[in-house]
Simulated assay, not measured.
Amino acid sequence: MTRRQQDVQSGAFAPSPVRTPVDQVRLRILEGIISGELRPGDRLPSEVEQARGFKVGRSTVREALRSLVEMGLLSTAQGRGGGSFVNNFDSVPVERNLKDAMELLLHFDAINVRELLEARGVLEGTCARLAARRRGDDELARMAEVLDQAGRTELSAEEWLQLDIEFHRAVALSGDNRVLIVPLAALHAVVQPRLNEAIMPLLDREEVNAQHRAIYEAIGAGDSEAAGAAVEAHLTSLEQLYRRAGLL
Rank of each mutant, 00 (worst) to 15 (best):
residue 124 E to G: 06
residue 166 E to H: 07
residue 86 V to D: 08
residue 92 V to Y: 10
residue 95 E to F: 07
residue 87 N to I: 09
residue 125 G to A: 08
residue 120 R to Q: 05
residue 179 V to C: 12
residue 158 E to L: 13
residue 141 A to P: 07
residue 85 F to L: 04
residue 117 L to V: 15
residue 116 L to D: 02
residue 143 M to I: 00
residue 118 E to F: 13
residue 136 G to Y: 05
residue 129 R to C: 09
residue 109 D to P: 02
residue 176 D to L: 13
residue 123 L to W: 00
residue 159 E to K: 02
residue 157 A to F: 02
residue 158 E to N: 06
residue 167 F to V: 05
residue 128 A to E: 01
residue 167 F to I: 09
residue 177 N to Y: 13
residue 108 F to S: 10
residue 121 G to Y: 02
residue 82 G to F: 14
residue 132 A to Y: 02
residue 92 V to D: 08
residue 135 R to Q: 06
residue 129 R to E: 12
residue 125 G to Q: 07
residue 86 V to T: 03
residue 106 L to Q: 04
residue 82 G to Y: 09
residue 132 A to R: 02
residue 82 G to W: 11
residue 134 R to Y: 07
residue 155 L to M: 06
residue 82 G to E: 07
residue 115 E to P: 02
residue 150 A to D: 00
residue 154 E to I: 01
residue 90 D to Y: 09
residue 91 S to W: 07
residue 94 V to C: 08
residue 101 A to P: 03
residue 178 R to W: 14
residue 108 F to P: 05
residue 131 A to G: 07
residue 131 A to L: 05
residue 96 R to G: 10
residue 172 A to L: 03
residue 102 M to G: 05
residue 171 V to K: 04
residue 149 Q to N: 13
residue 174 S to Q: 04
residue 132 A to T: 01
residue 138 D to V: 13
residue 116 L to N: 00
residue 109 D to I: 00
residue 93 P to K: 00
residue 140 L to F: 04
